[in-house]
Design a protein around this nucleic acid. Sequence first.
DNA 1: CATAATTTTGCAACGTTGTTGCAAAATTAC
DNA 2: GTAATTTTGCAACAACGTTGCAAAATTATG
Lengths: 144, 144
Amino acid sequence: MGNKQQITERIAALLKDSKLSVTETRTKILELFMKSNGALEHSDFEKLAGKSFDRVTVYRTLQTFLDKGIIHRIPTTDTSVRYAVCKSECTEHHHHDHHVHFKCEACGNTICLDDTNIPEIQLPKGFAANNVEVVVSGVCKSCK
Amino acid sequence: MGNKQQITERIAALLKDSKLSVTETRTKILELFMKSNGALEHSDFEKLAGKSFDRVTVYRTLQTFLDKGIIHRIPTTDTSVRYAVCKSECTEHHHHDHHVHFKCEACGNTICLDDTNIPEIQLPKGFAANNVEVVVSGVCKSCK
DNA sequence: CATAATTTTGCAACGTTGTTGCAAAATTAC
DNA sequence: GTAATTTTGCAACAACGTTGCAAAATTATG
Ligand SMILES: [Mn+2]
Ligand SMILES: [Mn+2]
Ligand SMILES: [Zn+2]
Ligand SMILES: [Zn+2]
C-alpha cells in the first residue's frame, strides 16, 4: 500500500480547510483515527504512538479537533472519554452527528453506526430537545 | 414537615432489603438522593454534606449502591459520572432502567424521565443489542 | 528564500479524581 | 453484653487533566 503519501496529503488538506497549521502531531493523530476501526480514547494515543509526543499535546490536539468539528465525543457511563472522526457535515460551530453509537461488550470497541438513524423521542410536555445521544451496547458484527 | 423520621425509617428498610448495614453515611447519601430533583455526581456529596464523611467512603458507598441495584449511572460526554436512584424493578444482578435521561443545558440538572420509553433501534445486520442508553439534552420544564 | 510574526509544542508544576491497605470504629449476630 | 463482621477514615499512591512559559516549528511577508 503505497498510498501513505496520499493519506498524508488528504490530512494536510483537511487541516488547512479547518485553518489549522499542519503539524506532525496533528497529522499523526488523524492518521491513527483513520487507521482505527473504532473510537479512540486518550490513552490509546500513548499506546499506539508510543511516546512520540507529549500527553499535554494530545489533550490540546483533541480539544482543537473538537472545536473545529473534526471529531466528536461519544458518551460513556464511566470516566473515560471516547472520540471519533466526524462526517463531513460537521463544521466549526455545529456538529451534525445524528447517528447511533455501538459499544461491543466482547471486543470493547466503540463504533459509529453512521447509517443508523436516531428515532424521534416523545418527551413530556415542557421539555425541548436539542440533541439526542444514543449508545447501544451488545455484541458487534465481528464478535458475533 | 415532620416526616424526617419517616424518611429515615424508609431508608433503613431499603438498606435492609438489600442486606446492607444501616450506617450514617449510607443513610445520609440516600437522603441526599431523595431530596435532590436530579442526578448527583460525586462532587455534589462533598458540597451538599460538607465534610461530614470521607471522600473514600462516598466512592465506596456509591459503588455498593450500584452493585445492589439501588442507583444507576447516567452516561455523559465528559469525565463526570452521574448517579440516580433506580426504580423498584432493579435488583442486585439486573438493572431495568429502560427510560430516557434528560440533561438541561440551562440549569445543568440531569433527570430521569421515568415514563419516557426508549424506542426500538434497528441495528445493521450482525449487531445484537443488549442495552440502549438515551440521553437527550435541551431545556427542561422548569427552565422553559 | 530569508526573516518576522504567529502558532504549536514540551516541560515542569500543580490540581483533581479515583484506588488500596490497614487499623479503629460502628454495626450486626449471638 | 460480648464476639464476629462490616464499614469507615486516614495515609499513601496512581491516573488523569490543566496551566504558564520558553523553545521549536509553522506560516506569512517582502
Ligand atoms: Mn460517531
Ligand atoms: Mn435514570
Ligand atoms: Zn466486538
Ligand atoms: Zn433546567
